[in-house]
Amino acid sequence: MEGDIVQMGAYIGAGLACMGMGGAAVGVGSIVGNYLSGALRNPSAAQSQTAMLFIGIAFSEAFGIFSFLVALLLMFAV
């Protein structure tokens, strides 16, 4: 019985952890959107900033991956 509750908690926690992915999605969307609006204002400078764009995406996305990882840990490792 106790084990079932633990398992249920783990699954609920995994589901909750997946909400973090939404945050990452918002972050990535914001970065790309701002990049795009900047790039449309000044297309000549856009090319030199793609590296910064990808670094920003990577940082933002990492947190989504962390939440995914937490979900996986709750699902499989706890």
């Binding site: 990577a58 940082f59 996305e61 990492a62 991956i65 962390f66 995914f68 990882l69 996986l72």
Partner: peptide
């Protein structure tokens, strides 16, 4: 973050 980003992305995609 450097390592988990790579492994997590790849693992997530495949899973």
């Amino acid at each position: 973050s450097h390592s988990i980003r790579l492994a997590g992305n790849i693992m997530a995609g495949h899973a």
